[in-house]
C-alpha cells in the first residue's frame, strides 16, 4: 500500500481550475518531484497535502489515514519553504527545537535532538546564531533541520533551492537527497528546474495546467515522454515535421528524404523529436539514418561545441566534443547528420 496517496484531487480558485484530477501514490521512503512551469499548480498540490488549502474534491491519505479532516498542525508534516521562513526572533537551535517544544518534548531529549539535527545538516556550531546571521544556503539547511526534527511522516519542499546561487544549489540538492535517503523519509519536492527534478528524484511528476501529464522515473520521463509537452519541457528537443508516406511500414518523408522508422505510424503528418545527444555529425556506428543539412550556428564552448543545423525548414541542435586536432565546422558548411531510427520519438497531438 502506498504511504502517501493522492486521488482525484481537484481545486479551483474562482473560475480558475488550478489542479485537475490529480492522482499520485508515493511509497514509503520515496522521493518524488513535481515538475512543471510556473503557475501549473505544483504549490497548490503541496499546500493541500500540508493542509493549508482545502481541495474541492478528492482524497489525501497518509499511511492509510484520511488527513483531509485534519488541520495543518495535526498532520505530522515537515515543510520547507522557498522564502526563508525561519523564525527571526529565535536562534537556530530554538528554530530547530520549535516543533519539539510545541509537542511538549522534555528539555534533555530536545537538546539532544537539536544537536543531532544540527550535525546532520553540517552546522553543529551555529546553534546560538540568529537566522539573519546565516547565509541563504545555511538558512535553508536550518529550515530542513527544523522540518525534520519532530520526525514528520512526510516531508514537503517547495522550491527550497530556487533563491540560492547556482553552486550552493547543486551542493545543497545533493545534501538534501543524501539526508532524505539516510532518514528514509517520504518526500514530495516541488521544482520548476528539470535538472533538479531529474537528478534528485526516484520519480518525477510532470505537471501542466493542473494536470499530471506523466509520472515516471527520470530515465523514463526523459527518454520516453508520454506527451509533446513532457518531451518539450524536459530537456532540449529537436522537433522535425515529417509526412507519413506509408503508415504500416513506418516510412516518412523528412526534409526531402525518404526514411524508414521500422514501426507503424498514424497516417498524415508526424512530429519527430530528437534529443541533441542522439545526433552525431558525420557517420557513426549504429546510427544508420542519414539527414543532409547545413550548419546554421556554431558555438564553441570549450570542451563542447554546440551547433544548430538546418535540415529542410527545421533546425536540429546537437553537441559534439571538442577535438584538439580538428577545428569546429564553419557556418554554411554542408554536413551529414546520423541518427538511429530507434531514437526518433514520435510526438502525439
Amino acid at each position: 500500500m502506498p504511504f502517501l496517496e493522492i486521488a482525484r484531487l481537484e481545486k479551483s480558485f474562482g473560475a480558475l481550475r488550478v489542479v485537475r484530477d490529480f492522482n499520485l501514490a508515493i511509497e514509503k521512503g520515496e522521493f518524488v518531484s513535481l515538475l512543471g512551469p510556473s503557475g501549473c499548480g505544483k504549490t497548490t498540490v503541496l499546500r493541500m497535502v500540508a493542509g493549508f488549502e482545502a481541495p474541492d474534491s478528492g482524497t489525501i491519505r497518509i499511511d492509510g489515514q484520511d488527513v483531509l479532516g485534519l488541520r495543518p498542525n495535526q498532520r505530522s508534516i515537515g515543510m520547507v519553504f522557498q522564502a526563508y521562513a525561519l523564525f527571526p526572533n529565535l536562534t537556530v537551535a530554538q528554530n530547530v527545537g520549535f516543533g519539539l517544544k510545541v509537542k511538549g518534548t522534555g528539555r534533555a531529549e530536545m537538546d539532544a535532538r537539536v544537536d543531532e539535527m544540527l550535525r546532520l545538516i553540517g552546522l553543529p556550531d551555529l546553534g546560538q546564531r540568529y537566522p539573519f546571521q546565516l547565509s541563504g544556503g545555511q538558512q535553508q539547511r536550518v529550515a530542513l533541520a527544523r522540518a525534520l526534527a519532530p520526525k514528520p511522516q512526510v516531508l514537503l519542499l517547495d522550491e527550497p533551492l530556487s533563491a540560492l546561487d547556482a553552486k550552493v544549489r547543486v551542493s545543497l540538492r545533493n545534501e538534501i537527497r543524501a539526508i532524505q535517503r539516510d532518514l528514509g523519509i517520504t518526500t514530495l519536492f516541488v521544482t520548476h528546474d528539470q535538472e533538479e527534478a531529474l537528478s534528485m528524484s526516484d520519480r518525477v511528476v510532470v505537471m501542466n495546467g493542473g494536470l499530471a501529464e506523466q509520472v515516471g522515473d527520470p530515465h523514463e520521463i526523459y527518454n520516453r515522454p508520454a506527451t509533446r509537452f513532457v518531451a518539450q519541457f524536459v530537456g532540449t528537443l529537436n522537433v522535425l515535421e515529417a509526412e507519413v508516406t506509408d503508415p504500416a511500414a513506418g516510412r516518412v518523408r523528412l526534409a526531402g528524404q525518404e526514411i524508414a522508422l521500422g514501426r507503424p505510424l498514424p497516417p498524415g503528418r508526424a512530429s519527430l523529436a530528437l534529443r541533441p545527444e542522439v545526433v552525431s555529425l558525420g557517420p557513426a556506428p549504429g546510427r544508420d539514418l542519414r539527414l543532409a543539412g547545413r550548419i546554421a550556428e556554431v558555438h564553441f564552448l570549450g570542451s563542447v561545441i554546440r551547433m544548430r543545423v538546418a535540415v529542410g525548414s527545421d533546425h536540429v541542435s546537437l553537441d559534439a566534443f571538442n577535438r584538439p586536432d580538428a577545428p569546429p565546422p564553419a557556418v554554411g558548411e554542408a554536413v551529414e547528420l546520423s541518427v538511429s531510427p530507434r531514437d526518433l520519438l514520435v510526438l502525439e497531438g
Binding site: A50, P72, Q74, M79, A85, A147, L156
Partner: peptide, 14 residues
C-alpha cells in the same frame, strides 16, 4: 512574512 511564518509554525504543530 506573516503568512509563511504562520504556516511554518503550523506545520510544526503550533
Amino acid at each position: 512574512d506573516v503568512r509563511t511564518l504562520t504556516e511554518a509554525a503550523q506545520s510544526l504543530g503550533a
